[in-house]
Design a protein around this nucleic acid. Sequence first.
DNA 1: CCGATGCTTCGGGCCTTGCCGAAGCATCGG
DNA 2: CCGATGCTTCGGCAAGGCCCGAAGCATCGG
Lengths: 232, 232
Amino acid sequence: MVTANRIAEMAAAMGEPARAAMLAALMDGRAMTATELARVAGIAPPTASGHLARLVAARLVAAERHGRHRYHRLAGPEAARLIESMMQMAGAAPAPHAVPRFGPRDAALRQARTCYDHLAGRLGVGLADALVAGGWVAMEGEAAWMTEAGRARFGALGIPLPQAARHGRPGCRPCLDWSERRPHLAGRLGAALCSHAFGQGWVHRVEGTRAVTVTPKGRLALREAFGLAESG
Amino acid sequence: MVTANRIAEMAAAMGEPARAAMLAALMDGRAMTATELARVAGIAPPTASGHLARLVAARLVAAERHGRHRYHRLAGPEAARLIESMMQMAGAAPAPHAVPRFGPRDAALRQARTCYDHLAGRLGVGLADALVAGGWVAMEGEAAWMTEAGRARFGALGIPLPQAARHGRPGCRPCLDWSERRPHLAGRLGAALCSHAFGQGWVHRVEGTRAVTVTPKGRLALREAFGLAESG
DNA sequence: CCGATGCTTCGGGCCTTGCCGAAGCATCGG
DNA sequence: CCGATGCTTCGGCAAGGCCCGAAGCATCGG
């Protein structure tokens, strides 16, 4: 009974168009200020402030002060996962959940972007395909796992590996790509790959968006390391 | 933007204690009448009727008339999956989400029950353990898959097998058991095993509950087929 | 055909919640 | 030190939602 109440609390926090829009906007894993989120949701700052307080209370969103700004991000991978399930069941968006008004960045977003903490778009899907084709990773339905060979080769590249079956977050799982409608790689492995790609200068973020571009160096590295033919 | 609204609609449908309690009660996959659900949620029948209409509108619940009764069940595996995610994030229930007032059936429920369309409780967890130990199935984190050997042996037992990587539902996935706090087997394989167990007379449902008992025949068969030592 | 049963619709009371503008705090930049 | 900026709190309004009892439909059992 108590569990039903907690469910209701969380669900109610998501169950309002303005808050749902905010959560969707946070799904790329970046943090946003209250004012930005107000604009995204199409409401006045005071209203947004109230909504955000409620999302924080429901532990779906975490907030952090930096000077006179307050940055909001999803509370964690579980929250992202939950919202992702909802989006999927909501019938995946026809357009890749729009960033309103910021102009026609759709092409760039479709090509490559971050999805919470891993890579998505054609780049993410292509990378996942290459990893499966190369025998690094196997996928079946909603399951994915590293092969033994993959584990060894990721290690050799200096990519920190999720230990097998640690209790919390799955090491490796497929995540349905909004724009491509095919799976890319999420979970701890997806996050590790993404941060490695940033760290090595394979990709750069397009300032102020969640789009990323592949550098020439990255294009080369992705082909050499994973056999990824075209990466944008 | 439209996607945020649909999310909000679904979430709002879940975001009310009475409705959340109803959904939780439906999580074993059986259908319940409106009056039963009213009692579960602790509200009057007219109120429940309104709630159920809303859940149906949100496509979380499906209803079906049988004579003067109207049976409600979860709309499908995706809905079950979604609610399960919420429960998990809600911090798995201390008690196995209670069937109120129907008396002290907890012991039986903990021992063996259905969870949506597959087996749960000590029986379900033990079966999953045995399948992993016997090399039928492998599990890692939130991923699970049939081994080649397992696929062949399930087929030999006459259990209809999910084809690899069909698009909709995952063939095989772990599902955190409420009472045991360890995974049992869900997905299409879990459902196939469960219906096989009922069909072969390995288990019987305890009338009017979601508890099941293992028959002597079932105990024998489970040991012989899967090496499951004690099955209640 | 008639009463009992299951469910829904209707009407109305009550409370919650969304929304905004104005005003109050804090921080930054000069 | 002062104005601009980001955010929150406050007050008030309006809409929507939850809840119930009474009454209306349908179905079942005799």
